[in-house]
Every structure is written in structure tokens, then in C-alpha cells.
Amino acid sequence: MMTHTAYVLASYGIAAVTVLALVLWVWTDGRARRRELQALEAAGIRRRSVQAGDVQ
């Protein structure tokens, strides 16, 4: 039988792990996509709108 405090700590622990995992996933996904875009631009590939001079 767990004590009441153990249930509370388990709840906050799981919440912290879930939120951190979510933040980490969004963060690393963003970094990876930014790197890919930079690599493509370094290779001289431009988006069509940029090529057409429609820079915004």
C-alpha cells in the first residue's frame, strides 16, 4: 500500500517527465528542421518565391 505522499509524488513526477519529453521533442525537432533548411540553402537551393524576388 502506497502512502498518500507517494501518489502525489508519482503524479507530479509523471507530469514532469511527460512535459519535459514534449518540450524536448519540439525543441530537437525544431533544431533538426532548421539545420536541414540551412543545409539546403548552403547547397544553393532557394524557395521558388525567393527566386522570383518575392522576398517577405
Binding site: R33, L37, A43, R47
Partner: peptide, 16 residues
């Protein structure tokens, strides 16, 4: 923002 970047990467690769 990540999803917009992902789609841009896909379309730029296709274009390349």
C-alpha cells in the same frame, strides 16, 4: 513553426 519548416524542406528537396 517546425511543421512549416518541415514542409519547406520537403518542397525544396523536391524542387532540387
Amino acid at each position: 513553426r517546425n511543421e512549416i519548416w518541415r514542409r519547406r524542406v520537403t518542397s525544396m528537396r523536391r524542387q532540387a
